[in-house]
Computed example of a mutant assay.
Amino acid sequence: MRERRESTLADRRAREFEAFVAGAGGRLLHVATLLTAESPGHSPEAQRLLVGALAEMYAEWDRRHDEDPYDRTRQELVTRFARSAWRLRRRARTWDAGADAGVLVRLVPQERLVVVLRLYEGVPEEQTAALLGLPVERVRAIGTRAVSVLRSTRPPRLRAPTWRDAS
């Protein structure tokens, strides 16, 4: 009887977690892809980060009754990215930022964290500062600098065809 009850609880837990991943997995993968600055079609580092964050969330699933699982998983994702960012930065020095690169590739990891949390996820400055362990003023400065870098890096303009080119 006890084994049957435990089996039922495990099945319910698995179904709940599967429903969570089905609903939030795509958005969380997009967040991870933005953080790692990989292309959306090929993002092995982002997938690795997300699998680790989801595994941690699954391990804590029963203990997180009052917390939003999306927020908790995003926190874990951000923490894992921050811990591994030094490897990504070192690899980026030798990596050709060509067509495979993501939009945020020109930003350093800390700038990417602030831009993704503040602009893409809509996390308030105070919460972003607390999550990253930085003062609010520093988060504001990092965000301002990152946005100015993004605005200054426009794709090259295409030259309009002239009559000579058309012939």
Score class of each variant (00 low, 15 high):
residue 80 R to N: 06
residue 122 G to W: 05
residue 142 I to W: 07
residue 164 R to M: 08
residue 74 R to S: 10
residue 103 V to D: 12
residue 22 A to Y: 06
residue 105 V to G: 01
residue 149 V to L: 14
residue 33 T to C: 07
residue 76 E to L: 13
residue 59 A to N: 06
residue 48 R to D: 05
residue 16 E to K: 01
residue 105 V to D: 04
residue 108 V to R: 14
residue 29 L to Q: 11
residue 8 T to M: 11
residue 58 Y to M: 09
residue 158 L to K: 12
residue 129 A to R: 11
residue 11 D to V: 07
residue 138 R to W: 06
residue 68 D to H: 12
residue 94 T to D: 11
residue 30 H to K: 11
residue 112 R to N: 03
residue 40 P to E: 12
residue 93 R to A: 09
residue 150 L to E: 06
residue 65 H to R: 15
residue 104 L to E: 06
residue 5 R to K: 08
residue 19 A to F: 03
residue 81 F to V: 09
residue 154 R to P: 00
residue 52 G to W: 05
residue 14 A to T: 08
residue 90 R to E: 09
residue 149 V to D: 00
residue 92 A to F: 08
residue 4 R to D: 11
residue 17 F to N: 06
residue 116 V to W: 08
residue 138 R to D: 12
residue 106 R to K: 04
residue 75 Q to F: 03
residue 104 L to W: 11
residue 137 E to C: 01
residue 83 R to M: 04
residue 105 V to M: 07
residue 98 G to M: 02
residue 120 Y to A: 03
residue 80 R to G: 01
residue 33 T to H: 02
residue 4 R to L: 14
residue 8 T to P: 00
residue 143 G to F: 07
residue 16 E to Q: 15
residue 138 R to C: 07
residue 56 E to H: 05
residue 9 L to F: 14
residue 149 V to K: 15
residue 15 R to F: 07
residue 83 R to S: 09
residue 95 W to C: 08
residue 47 Q to I: 00
residue 62 D to A: 14
residue 147 V to L: 15
residue 99 A to C: 02
residue 64 R to N: 07
residue 167 S to T: 14
residue 107 L to A: 02
residue 134 L to W: 05
residue 27 R to L: 10
residue 146 A to E: 04
residue 126 E to T: 12
residue 48 R to W: 11
residue 160 A to G: 13
residue 40 P to K: 11
residue 65 H to W: 08
residue 54 L to V: 04
residue 82 A to G: 04
residue 156 P to M: 02
residue 36 T to F: 01
residue 10 A to W: 10
residue 29 L to I: 03
residue 139 V to M: 06
residue 24 A to N: 08
residue 5 R to D: 07
residue 80 R to F: 03
residue 36 T to G: 06
residue 102 G to M: 02
residue 127 Q to G: 01
residue 13 R to A: 10
residue 132 L to N: 09
residue 88 L to C: 00
residue 142 I to T: 12
residue 63 R to K: 14
residue 167 S to R: 15
residue 72 R to T: 11
residue 64 R to L: 10
residue 89 R to S: 15
residue 27 R to V: 09
residue 155 P to K: 10
residue 86 W to Y: 13
residue 141 A to N: 09
residue 112 R to M: 04
residue 101 A to S: 12
residue 17 F to T: 08
residue 44 P to E: 02
residue 96 D to G: 00
residue 143 G to N: 07
residue 162 T to N: 08
residue 139 V to W: 01
residue 119 L to G: 03
residue 15 R to Q: 15
residue 159 R to Q: 08
residue 66 D to Q: 12
residue 101 A to T: 04
residue 145 R to K: 15
residue 113 L to M: 10
residue 102 G to Q: 04
residue 91 R to K: 11
residue 148 S to C: 01
residue 149 V to C: 00
residue 166 A to M: 13
residue 49 L to F: 05
residue 125 E to I: 13
residue 82 A to N: 12
residue 68 D to C: 12
